[in-house]
């Protein structure tokens, strides 16, 4: 009885979580320019429009470039920091770790406004590259968390064995540590990539008038009425996001990344 109730609860929650996406997916298939559900007629032309319409295609490319560049920069910031904290006994370095966590915990509008004041003070407001730097700092939390977990999981006796055999720090990092933390680095990159792809407020406040990423494009388009193209873009984003997390789950330990391990000591 209770088991049955539990399955019912899980099923209901799954249904409610999926419902908006399913309706949007249905709407995206409408043959005519209308938002009907169930769709009237079937057509994939709205999906084609994402790639043929210069506006939507430009926004898609802008989003992908910003996401890839900012995720790479976020990893470049997080990796040395996480390594340093793991390698040396330096409690003061934890302060930088806290700084790296802060933008993620605070309401996003605060970080966005901080960047707006910063870039406009230094006369860079509206420059497309500022979005990359802003996103990298905004999402540095994710690679920082995954890499800290990764370094924490490295068995120090491997490292000791290597250094007893004469390997210096650089060699140990390259031959022992790097292969062990690589999956965590990739997951950190993927998390930052997906979130940057979906981010609106920071991108909008920093360069909303000069660089149109997909979320900004959708929001701007919403003001002129709803079209099935938005629904198609939404479905594309959901699929892309699910594919990235699916890959993380396939090649990494997702429950562990999300903190579900039994304490060893």
């Amino acid at each position: 009885m209770l088991r049955w109730l539990n399955s019912l609860m899980a099923g209901l929650i799954g249904l409610v979580l999926a419902a908006p996406i399913l309706v949007v997916a249905g709407v995206s298939l409408n043959a005519k320019r209308s938002l009907d559900f169930p769709p009237k007629g079937l057509s994939l032309s709205w999906y084609a429009e994402i790639f043929t319409d210069p506006g939507w295609r430009g926004a898609l490319i802008a989003s992908l470039v910003v996401a890839a560049a900012s995720a790479a920069l976020a990893v470049a910031i997080a990796f040395p920091l996480a390594w340093f904290i793991w390698r040396w006994r330096a409690p003061w370095a934890r302060a930088f770790e806290v700084l790296g966590m802060a933008p993620f915990i605070l309401p996003p509008v605060i970080t966005a406004l901080g960047f707006l004041s910063f870039w406009s003070t230094f006369g860079q407001y509206g420059e497309p590259w500022t979005v990359v730097v802003s996103h990298a700092v905004f999402f540095v939390t994710l690679p920082l968390v995954t890499l800290s977990l990764g370094f924490g999981a490295v068995d120090r006796s491997f490292v000791e064995a290597a250094s007893t055999m004469g390997a210096d720090d650089r060699t140990v990092l390259r031959t022992v540590v790097m292969p062990l933390v690589r999956p965590y680095m990739i997951s950190g990159f993927a998390f930052a990539f997906v979130l940057s792809l979906n981010e609106y407020i920071v991108a909008y406040m920093v360069a909303g008038f000069t660089l149109e990423t997909l979320p900004i494009k959708i929001f701007n388009a919403l003001r002129y009425g709803y079209t099935p193209t938005m629904a198609a873009v939404t479905v594309l984003f959901v699929l892309l996001t699910a594919a990235v997390f699916g890959l993380i789950a396939r090649f990494g330990d997702l429950p562990r990344l999300l903190g579900a391990w039994i304490k060893q000591d």
Partner: peptide, 9 residues
Amino acid sequence: SLSEVIIGF
């Protein structure tokens, strides 16, 4: 990770 824009839409 869905954008608020997408959730709202």
